[in-house]
């Protein structure tokens, strides 16, 4: 079923362990502020890498570098084509759910009927059957994030950059979407960079958790998570990873490692 749903993923695949995202000693400054300082980070094909850090640790900057929206001041960024999923869904209110999901196809020149047909199948996949014609303002926050994720998937890029995708949601919806994302990624595996300041979210979803220090953003810890997904938030390893990440954040001076504040962060 997944085969006719997924957009063709581009490019030859040399090997499963080939890094699809590779940042080497990346530094990015904005005037007097150093957002990222010598950050080295790799993501293998279909690996889910969570990047955690307090506000001001340059997490969003990191994603924009990977997406090619910014260039590093020093170091190198090499990445397969990456699509951004911003914290605020940025759905277009003049399109219905289907139209929003189909947007990347339309931008690639796919005809309206065909684009909507493919988006239709994917919306069913992400649990939005029956809401295809719903206006954006008729959808709940969780549904909107699902549409936004469907849109991200349909772009057909091998790398997904998720910037606090569940940051604006309540805890219950967020937990629900964690399970949902795990399922969807099992069916449609992609390389994922997940930026969050929720350490538990990172431990539940990621294969590897990268901890950034605030201003300047430096990698202060990298923690692998071995337990296969789906993993409950109460799993021993999740709890342990969460604790280690929080320790690393505290040591780095992160003031709000486990905080679940919904606010965005600059840069």
């Amino acid at each position: 079923m997944a085969t006719d749903l997924e957009a063709p993923v581009e490019g030859p695949r040399p090997g499963a362990d080939e890094a699809e995202v590779e940042l080497l000693g990346v530094t990015r400054t904005f005037g007097p502020v150093t957002a990222l300082d010598g950050v080295t980070l790799r993501a293998a094909r279909h690996e889910v890498v969570a990047v955690v850090g307090a506000s001001g640790s340059g997490k969003s900057t990191l994603l924009e570098l990977v997406c090619g929206l910014q260039a590093p001041d020093a170091g190198s960024v090499r990445a397969a084509r990456a699509v951004l999923m911003p914290q605020r869904d940025q759905l277009l209110p003049w399109l219905d759910a289907l139209g929003n999901a189909a947007l990347p196809l339309r931008l690639q020149g796919v005809g309206k009927a065909q684009a909507r047909e493919r988006a239709h199948a994917l919306l069913r996949e992400v649990g939005l059957a029956g809401f295809e014609r719903a206006k954006v303002y008729e959808l709940s926050g969780g549904m909107r994030q699902r549409v936004a994720f469907a849109r991200t998937l349909l772009a057909g890029a091998p790398v997904l950059c998720l910037d606090e995708p569940f940051g604006a949601l309540d805890a219950i919806t967020r937990a629900e979407l964690h399970g949902w994302l795990t399922e969807v990624l099992a069916r449609e595996p992609r390389t994922v960079l997940l930026v969050t300041h929720d350490v538990e979210e990172a431990a539940v979803l990621a294969d590897r958790v990268v901890v950034l220090s605030p201003r300047p953003g430096r990698v202060v810890a990298e923690i692998a998570v071995e337990t296969p997904r789906p993993r409950p938030a109460t799993a021993d390893e999740v709890v342990a990873v969460r604790a280690r990440a929080l320790e690393a954040l505290a040591a780095a001076g992160g003031e709000a490692g486990g905080a679940r504040e919904a606010g965005g962060e600059p840069g």
Binding site: E64, C67, L69, L84, P86, Q90, L107, C161
Partner: peptide, 13 residues
């Protein structure tokens, strides 16, 4: 919003 423009750019617009 600038965020919207960034998103559209990564979608290849």
């Amino acid at each position: 919003e600038p965020e919207q423009h960034k998103l559209l750019r990564t979608l290849g617009a």
